[in-house]
């Protein structure tokens, strides 16, 4: 079976077979990152451009390391140091970058659909590294990879996604990816943070965390986006933490060997308590290391087009 996509724009656009293929392709790259010389020549001579129009350390570093370990050349463009501040449009910026013969463009942008629009106008492969509240497909893929690695599979698992689902592209990509691969997904959060009609995506909605956690195999806690505080989604951080924070006591309700995941950055003591974040159930750092392998696998699959 081969990979037919030019771009990775959303989980919605991938078939279950595509997702399985990506997870399979990522596996051997874990070994590369464990070597003394963490480099293979697969993408030698290719150029990868990271265009991050929103702040990011983890994702940008992860993409950069992935490309470098495949021997590609990597360039980082950020808006503060680019002609974006001089008034150039996104499309013009990218067309200019592309005319320097690039192969893969990694885009993070605050507007939903930015990557999709871009992909229509460029010859290079586009990887969506997060677009507004829409999707963050590589995060979902690395989460699935981690779940598969720890649990041996995805089908049939009960997964709870907890927190600000409405403003979370990670949640949207994960809901699509997990349901596509046969997991049962529940979401839990304050009513103001759960979008209406979410059940249409095939998930069960809870507003009480204790109910949502009962017997689950995996808990994905979302970051409370503190920068949105003051927009009245909930009365106070303390109340949010009391009702929706994941504590050791609450974790008892989940299955015995449940995994605790978080896309980072973690607000310790708010959405997740210190002891849970540091517990054996937490696989937050495994997610980060697997992220490099999954992104290497993706770039390897995409490189067949160039």
């Amino acid at each position: 079976m081969s990979f037919k996509h030019k771009d990775i724009l959303s989980i919605a656009a991938l078939s279950p077979e595509d997702v399985a293929l990506i997870l399979e392709a990522a596996e051997p790259f874990k070994e590369v990152s464990g070597r003394e010389i963490k480099k293979v020549p697969a993408l030698r001579g290719k150029t990868v451009v990271n265009l991050f129009f929103e702040p990011s350390t983890r994702t940008r570093t992860s993409f950069e390391l992935a490309a470098k370990r495949l021997s590609a050349d990597v360039i980082n463009v950020s808006p503060s140091s680019s002609s974006v501040v001089k008034g150039e449009t996104l499309l013009d910026t990218i067309r200019n970058v592309e005319s320097m013969q690039t192969d893969v463009l990694v885009l993070r942008h605050s507007s939903a659909g930015a990557a999709t629009t871009l992909a229509r106008h460029v010859r290079s492969s586009v990887i969506n590294a997060g677009d507004g509240w829409h999707e963050h497909p590589t995060q979902a893929l690395l989460d699935l990879f981690t779940i598969q690695e720890k649990k041996g599979g995805i089908r049939g698992l009960q997964v709870a996604i907890v927190g600000d689902v409405a403003h979370s592209r990670v949640a949207r990509s994960n809901i699509r990816a997990l349901t596509k691969m046969g997991a049962h997904v529940r979401v839990a959060g304050p009513p103001t943070m759960i979008p209406p009609f979410l059940e249409r995506l095939g998930v069960r909605v809870f507003h009480h965390l204790d109910e949502a956690l009962s017997g689950v195999d995996v808990i994905i806690t979302l970051r409370l986006q503190l920068e949105r505080q003051g927009r009245s989604f909930f009365p106070s951080i303390r109340e949010y933490s009391r009702l929706y924070g994941l504590t050791a006591e609450r974790l008892q309700r989940a299955a015995k060997d449940a995994l605790v995941m978080h896309p980072g950055p973690v607000n310790r003591g708010i959405e997740i308590s210190h002891d849970v974040a540091d517990s054996r159930s937490a696989v937050i750092l495994d997610q980060v290391s697997n992220g490099v392998a999954v992104r290497m696998g993706l770039m390897y699959l995409l490189s067949q087009l160039h």
Partner: peptide, 17 residues
């Protein structure tokens, strides 16, 4: 990953460990 024809093949071979 070390093949010299990676860039000219139509389909990427699936990697083994």
């Amino acid at each position: 990953l070390y093949r010299d024809d990676l860039a000219i093949r139509k389909h990427q071979p699936i990697l083994k460990k």
